[in-house]
């Protein structure tokens, strides 16, 4: 044992003399409180996961296929989430097609091109403030802009309240997140890499394409996946752009013409079912939550693991 060997005996004695022999009650209490705060948070997460998995298990095991592909119904025993999954799928498509290119492009401009002018600072401050705007306000924006603008383009009873409006609104909602995380990833690229490129005569774009983006790639990917997960879980903007809260005929087809019709999405299905008093909907809701959480948390966990892995390698 270390403590008993003569060589370390003296420092131990010095430590005791310095600290006193008293038990450090204050320090122990402080660290116990801090650890408790952390453990309560982690426990709440565990209880939440247990609660929904336990609640939804019977539905997911007794009729998995019917539940995943079925339509909304007033009877909990027949209700399925096929239409919700379809809406969430198209929202993901719009976020990937709209928010990712614009967001990464804006991040490249801010980090690589932007001169240090007032306009640049304005854009920077503006993006940070946009990231803090409540999601329900973005819903209002989508309602005022996209729903009205697309009204003439949509099917007879949709009035612009389509998955296109919802997808564009959520793309705008996560755009600041994509920009901020991508800009951070680009900022982490060492300047020596850029200088090496300029040194052999490459233009700025050539340096960005062949040096900066490959190096910043994993970081950008992490940020974009986190942003996508955020978009898939948002419900408040969907309410405002008119996702169906009641029943929906159709809305489960994946062909492009169906984009003109009315829609719903996973978070809306959950919101809708939570408010239903009929028996059986609590388990159906829990099952729908398990499916949504599986999508969102798998995306999140992949992004976080990816980032930790690349951080460690550098």
């Amino acid at each position: 044992m270390i403590g008993t060997t003569p060589a370390t005996y003296a420092p131990e004695a010095v430590r005791k003399r310095l600290q006193g022999k008293r038990f450090d009650a204050k320090g122990f209490a402080f660290s116990a409180c801090l650890l408790a705060a952390l453990l309560i948070t982690v426990t709440l997460l565990a209880v939440l996961l247990y609660d929904v998995i336990n609640g939804g298990w019977s539905v997911l095991t007794s009729r998995p296929i019917e539940f995943l592909t079925g339509s909304l119904s007033s009877a909990a025993a027949d209700a399925g989430i096929g239409q919700g999954l379809r809406g969430t799928f198209f929202i993901a498509v719009f976020v990937i097609l709209v928010a990712f290119p614009i967001g990464i492009g804006a991040a490249i401009y801010l980090e690589e091109y932007a001169p240090s002018t007032r306009l640049t600072r304005l854009i920077d401050v503006n993006i940070r403030n946009l990231a803090g705007v409540p999601s329900v306000v973005y819903g209002l924006l989508g309602f005022a802009i996209f729903v009205k603008a697309l009204g003439s383009f949509t099917g007879p009873d949709a009035n612009g309240r389509t998955v296109i409006s919802a997808g564009l609104t959520l793309a705008i909602l996560v755009l600041p997140i994509v920009i901020i995380t991508s800009a951070e990833a680009i900022r982490a690229v060492p300047d020596s890499l850029r200088e090496a490129g300029f040194g052999v005569g490459a233009t700025r774009w050539e340096v960005i394409r062949s040096h900066v983006l490959p190096y910043a790639g994993p970081g950008i990917l992490t940020g974009t996946v986190l942003a996508l997960a955020r978009a898939l879980g948002e419900a408040a903007p969907l309410i405002l752009v008119g996702a169906t809260t009641g029943f929906l005929s159709g809305g489960d087809s994946y062909n492009l013409a169906s984009l003109q019709g009315r829609f719903t999405a996973m978070p809306m299905v959950i919101y809708n079912w939570t408010g239903r008093p009929q028996p059986g909907f609590e388990t159906a809701t829990a099952a729908a939550i398990v499916v949504l959480l599986a999508v969102v948390l798998v995306a999140n966990a992949t992004a976080i693991l990816l980032r930790n892995r690349y951080e460690k390698r550098r």
Binding site: T41, L45, L48, L232, A235, T285, A286, I289, I304
Partner: peptide, 13 residues
Amino acid sequence: ILAGIPSVVLGFF
């Protein structure tokens, strides 16, 4: 991961 949980889920909880 807790930060990524959708708010409808916490509403249900």
